[in-house]
Design a protein around this nucleic acid. Structure first.
Lengths: 137, 137
DNA sequence: CTACATGCAAATGCTTTGCAACCTA
DNA sequence: TAGGTTGCAAAGCATTTGCATGTAG
């Protein structure tokens, strides 16, 4: 929790960060693993998980916990919102500015000490929307 | 996905719904299992999971997929938002009205067909906030 | 009677962890 | 060379599933 160890720059950590920064797909750990393995064939999935955690703690990347089951990672550390496809779980950024006033609004109305908020839209991406129209109903 | 079978009213289904309706804690499947077992000692956790899924499909309850790992269930099927304690994962309702205009705002700005949105606040509940002040730092 | 539902146990999927060997600073 | 890091395998945890049996309608 409150550690700030002496972090080292290892090849694995470096490559994971580089590859994540090339992707706009908000990949899962496994997807990052698949990509990184092209450059480091002997890397293990455990190492990918550990490094993503470390990089997130270092503030180099952002860990997304969206409503779909698995965690995703984002090189963009600025606060922003996402939309997730209900069918294929594709995730995209959404052009809506952070609603900071929401937390102020809640401030007097809750017994909680507010830390932040997540806003996530659910929808159908163009591909799945198309399939949905032809296959279902 | 699109099934609408002939649902039966079984003792298990009935008790799960009754017990969930007594709780304002947004319990996980396991927590519901613990409570229901007091009345039906031979019920299995699998049955609890299956029935929660069925009840959600029937629109009797709501399945919450908050950012914490495990799924939670809510007897309140009205659209409303939650706040989750970052330490103990306690979940409470939040007195903020649904922001319906958000989806309209996004409508022209995304290629997705919008289905809905989730808004979740993260904070520290009073108990954890107190602990945080005494133990840490 | 006949689907649907249950209990049980095994399987699944994602993520974490223990440990000995390995490297970075 | 000390302590963080890795690969590997096993464990962990929430959830799902196969199957024989049970039961509501």
């Amino acid at each position: 929790m409150l550690q700030e160890k002496n972090r080292r720059i290892t090849k694995q950590r470096q490559v994971i960060l580089e590859e994540l920064r090339k992707l706009n797909t908000h990949p899962s750990a496994d997807e990052i693993y698949k990509v990184v393995r092209r450059r480091l064939p002997r890397i293990s999935l455990g190492t990918v998980y550990r490094n993503l955690e470390v990089l997130a703690q270092m503030g180099e990347i952002q860990k997304l916990e969206l409503s779909g089951s698995l965690k995703r990672y984002d090189w963009n550390t600025n606060k922003h919102y996402h939309i997730r496809c209900a069918r294929c779980n594709r995730v995209d950024d959404v052009p809506i500015a952070p609603l900071n006033q929401l937390e102020d609004e809640l401030y007097e109305a809750t017994v909680y000490e507010i830390i932040g908020h997540n806003l996530e839209f659910i929808g159908l991406c163009p591909e799945c929307s198309k399939k949905s129209r032809t296959i279902d109903h």
